[in-house]
């Protein structure tokens, strides 16, 4: 399994429409729901917000990773949204988020392949070049190129 199996092109939004966190969350939730990866959209949404309440997932440097390990998720998936103008995510550094990865993980799932992939993605996000390239990518194919290494 590779990240490109979890983050397929139908889960990418290169120019998000939402103007705030709630709207962006809805947009990415819709994408995830459309792939049949969610068993219960509302449960997953609630878990996502519970996690945000715990502390914003806006980790700074323009990145937010709303995520949930939830009963509302059937299959692990990652949705990717980009908003060049940025959206307020109560980030740790106060800066708006440009790159948003919504990570959906089922509560019970055999094996940890998917967790290892998410671990690798998390580590990649610390890399400045990776972020710059993601911001500069012109197409979904290019994004896939970038994440295929993960």
């Amino acid at each position: 399994m590779k990240l490109s199996d979890l983050l397929t092109e139908d889960l990418m939004v290169l120019e998000l429409e939402g103007a705030n966190r709630e709207e962006v969350m809805e947009e990415l939730l819709n994408r995830l729901d459309a792939t049949q990866a969610l068993s219960d959209r509302e449960t997953f949404k609630k878990d996502l917000y519970d996690r945000e309440k715990h502390g914003s997932t806006g980790i700074g440097s323009g990145i937010a990773i709303p995520h949930g390990k939830s009963d509302g998720v059937k299959e692990p998936r990652v949705a990717f949204g980009r908003k060049k103008s940025g959206v307020n995510w109560d980030s740790l550094d106060g800066e708006p988020a440009n790159l948003i990865f919504m990570i959906a993980v089922p509560k019970e799932k055999a094996g940890d392949d998917h967790l290892r992939i998410l671990q690798a993605l998390s580590r990649m996000l610390i890399d400045d070049d990776f972020r710059t390239n993601l911001l500069a990518a012109d197409s979904k194919e290019e994004v896939t190129e970038l994440i295929i290494a993960v």
Partner: peptide
């Protein structure tokens, strides 16, 4: 708490 992302980001950072 979730152990999905931040744990590993912090480690990498």
């Amino acid at each position: 708490p979730n152990g999905i992302a931040h744990t590993y980001m912090a480690a990498q950072k």
